[in-house]
């Protein structure tokens, strides 16, 4: 028996919004410790890794490890039927071929349940090695989303250059060139507005705007985003989900032909 309950459906809606542009389907691996999903997009350029800890749920029960392959478009349709403030419960029997998603209004006067067929997905799990990143940047998630959106107008690629002074995002194309520099915040009054850089070595890497923009669909989940970079390894873009877990996106850099 698997049962996981969250106080507000809005969190689950935001999580789904953050992954459904990159993935058509995904396998939710459920265990004692929580729910994990790891999946590459169809082109094998980026990877989504979602972790939801069991202690972040209002109720969590997982008697046996369970892998639930879900069509994320179908799940999005079901979640549209929930009000943001509804409680949401995800339930499945062991070895079941369906999952039940139940919504309850705060006053318990409206209860709805939706059944969805599970899928058997070929899982391509990637082993992600521990990496000492040369630069780790923490910055407001809204600012990162704004920069990615703005620079996508100029080029398909954005160059991220990080030094200890700051981080620079650049793009150039037919329209012209664009450079956006963010300095490290001097005095951190409000942590959620800070730009913080931990640098071992400066790094310059090129990434596809299209994917960065897809990652920023997670912006409603977190006030800050963390970018971890190292020469010749994929970028990690991490959004923490308050008291529940995190979503990490990995993106292979573009390399000179």
């Amino acid at each position: 028996m698997f049962e996981a309950r969250l106080g507000q459906a809005t969190i689950l809606k935001k999580i789904l919004d953050a992954i459904k542009d990159l993935l058509n389907e995904g396998t939710f691996d459920c265990s004692d410790s929580g729910i994990q999903l790891q999946a590459m997009d169809n082109s094998h350029v980026s990877l989504v890794s979602l972790t939801l800890r069991s202690d972040g749920f209002d109720k969590f029960r997982c008697d046996r490890n369970l892998s639930m392959g879900m069509n994320l478009g179908s799940m999005a349709k079901i979640l549209k039927c929930a009000n943001n403030e509804d409680n949401v419960t995800i339930k499945a029997q062991d070895n079941a071929d369906t999952v039940t998603i139940m919504f309850e209004s705060a006053n318990q006067e409206k209860v709805s349940d939706y059944g969805m067929k599970l899928m058997n997905l070929d899982q391509e799990h990637l082993g992600i090695p521990e990496t000492d990143y040369s630069c780790v940047v923490r910055m407001p998630a809204m600012e990162f989303a704004r920069i990615c959106r703005d620079l996508a107008q100029f080029s398909e690629s954005v160059v991220i250059c990080c030094t200890k002074e700051g981080v620079k995002f650049s793009a150039s194309g037919d329209v012209g060139t664009a450079n956006i520099k963010l300095a490290q915040t001097g005095n951190v009054d409000k942590e959620e507005e800070a730009v913080i850089i931990e640098m071992q070595e400066p790094v310059t890497l090129t990434f596809a705007c299209r994917y960065l923009n897809a990652f920023t669909k997670a912006t409603p989940l977190s006030t800050q985003v963390q970018l971890s970079m190292c020469a010749d390894v994929p970028l990690v873009v991490e959004y923490r989900i308050n008291e529940l877990g995190h979503i990490r996106y990995y993106l292979a850099p573009k390399i000179e032909d």
């Binding site: 010749d232 390894v233 292979a252």
Partner: peptide
């Protein structure tokens, strides 16, 4: 123009 690399160039399938 730079070309897009594949993630599996960096991370191995397990």
């Amino acid at each position: 123009t730079p070309i897009q690399n594949d993630l599996t160039e960096y991370f191995s399938l397990v």
